[in-house]
Amino acid sequence: MFERVEVFYRPASVREAVRLLAGGKGRARIVAGGTDLVVDGDPTARALIDITHSGLAYIRKQGGGCAIGAATTMAELEESRTILALGGGILARAAATCGSIQIRGVATVGGNLANGSPAADLVTPLLVLDAVVVVADAKGRRKLPIAEYLAARGTKGLRQSLLVEVTAPRPLGRRCGWSFQKLGRTALDISVVNVAAGLQVDGAGRIQWARVALGAVAPTAIRAGATEENLQGRTLDAEAIAQAAEGVMREVSPISDVRASAAYRREMCRVLTRRALEECAAQAGCAL
């Protein structure tokens, strides 16, 4: 599968990795768990740069939020107390649905984002957590909000850079609710649809802010901006949830493929969004 790969590097630092990437003239590929790269077997790859020894496997508390190194595995996310405590643990929950236990033992956060699949399990929770992606290239490090990263991922500006870290700020305040919902065909499956949601209500049960992200229903995972706006300031009740669930159906642009039809995906956006917001409401202490 990599018959034309000439060299395999294992840099000991990010600086070295970035240098190797720049020197690869577009034919070097970053590899960590290899669960996408090896399957794809890109015939244009001439050099592989393994970043699992570049000091990028870590989960750190950082200013109330956390910083996650790109080479952190799904298994590590799943079990990390820091991640379990962050945003109701939705990131850990998403990581736990990502492939088999063998896959989760090697697949990494960086790979899940950099591969750019619209169905990537970590992306919707990270969108809802307002995560920031840190990339490095020869010129230094840059921070990008995750939505911006997803949009720019394939562009020239990012192609020669290495995703090194994802940071999530600590969501402040009381009466927050969080949820991650995934629909697959079997227990081990890429998402047919996945939905993450987070919100906060005030003392009167009014929604201060709400975030809803949907995966596998658009070219990248998306935030349902209009739905979020409509929720803001409303009392979190069954009607608000039902309207939001209807609303997301207008914000998605799913396709039909061998996994599901577009119509089914759209309908499932409604169902999963409703379930996600109901779970958020329960956590935020709102009776529906």
Binding site: S100, R185, T186, A187, L188, D189, I190, D257, V258, R259
Partner: peptide, 28 residues
Amino acid sequence: LTEELVLDADGRPLNPNFLDYKMFGFQD
């Protein structure tokens, strides 16, 4: 419930792999 080799209109297989040809695993 899950296993089906799907062809497109030109007779090409759409899911000749375990990613999209879904078999029952232990968890199922």
